[in-house]
């Protein structure tokens, strides 16, 4: 089953265009959505959730047409949005009290268990919680109606490494069930290196890369050389490159082939952060 299927999604603003986005997310995996600020990650998430109006040829969630089954589909989605939650005068108790009448499958016991596990207080207003605690509450709220799909916009920002690791463990536990899927946008690419199965890289409203994470880590690499040697590299082997006064960094798409072809060059493994920087800042 596909958790999300999108064909030719478009959303235009005066100065920005999310252009013909095609995405296919199978069930049971964690998909990381990466890209710099203003690349279109939040617009894409908002378009999927109907927070902004977009045009599309196909938008299916759980293989069901979104327009026809919107309410049923949303019953099965848990969300964490950037800067969008309950008013901060309310407490976790108030959230529980409201949510049990909003979601049919809201699980009060599960919510209270999470509250205890994450050491939150039921009667403390959101405004008195630290940024990390707030985020935890948002994640708990997203999980407490047994959703099949989690759509999370920057869920780990503001969390310290210990809590981040707890939250990531929670996500991994969530996707143990093959029916559960997570679409997660983040700037903290190291989180995705730990948990993501698929990476979607979006830049300036366009999808530049949509591949399994292991394929990216196994195949992409950074070739490092001086300016003189740079001219020896076949231009077809270069995805992007960056030059500075000390030398060149070349993003390559087939590490093993390149290693054989250019035996004297240094080729480093790539991180998602390197990939993002070279894809955005590199020349083509």
């Amino acid at each position: 089953m596909n958790a999300i299927k999108i064909k030719k999604l478009k959303k235009s603003y005066k100065d920005f265009l999310l252009d013909n986005v095609n995405i296919n997310v199978p069930s049971g995996i964690i998909v990381g959505l990466i890209g710099e600020n203003g690349a279109g990650k939040t617009t894409l998430i908002k378009s999927i959730l109907g927070i902004v109006k977009s045009e599309y040829e196909v938008l299916k969630i759980f293989d069901k047409d979104y327009k026809i089954n919107e309410s049923e589909i949303k019953e099965n989605i848990g969300i964490v949005l950037d800067n969008a939650f309950f008013p901060e005068l309310l407490t976790p108790n108030d959230i529980n009290s409201s949510m049990k009448n909003i979601y049919k499958s809201w699980d009060e016991n599960l919510f209270n268990t999470y509250i205890r596990d994450f050491k939150l207080k039921n009667n403390k207003p959101i405004k008195n919680l630290s940024k990390g605690m707030r985020k935890k509450l948002e994640i708990i709220t997203a999980l407490s109606h047994h959703p099949k799909l989690l759509i999370l916009d920057e869920p780990t920002s503001g969390l310290d490494p210990v809590v981040r690791s707890e939250v990531l463990d929670l996500f991994l536990k969530f996707v143990k069930d093959d029916e559960h899927t997570i679409l997660l946008s983040t700037h903290i690419t190291t989180d995705l290196e730990h948990v993501a199965d698929q990476i979607i890289f979006i830049d300036n409203g366009k999808i530049l890369l949509d591949k399994p994470k292991d394929d990216i880590i196994d195949n992409y690499g950074i070739l490092k050389c001086d300016h003189k040697n740079f001219d020896l590299i076949d231009k077809n082997d270069i995805v992007t490159y960056k030059k500075n006064k000390y030398g060149c960094e070349v993003l390559i798409g087939d590490k093993n082939k390149i290693k054989k072809k250019y035996k004297d060059f240094v080729i480093d493994n790539i991180t998602l952060e390197d990939l993002m920087i070279l894809m955005i800042k590199g020349e083509r």
């Binding site: 109907g50 949303k74 969008a84 309950f86 759509i151």
Partner: peptide, 9 residues
């Protein structure tokens, strides 16, 4: 508090 975005989803 961005409640309206939350509501829409």
């Amino acid at each position: 508090n961005g409640w309206n975005s939350f509501v829409a989803s």
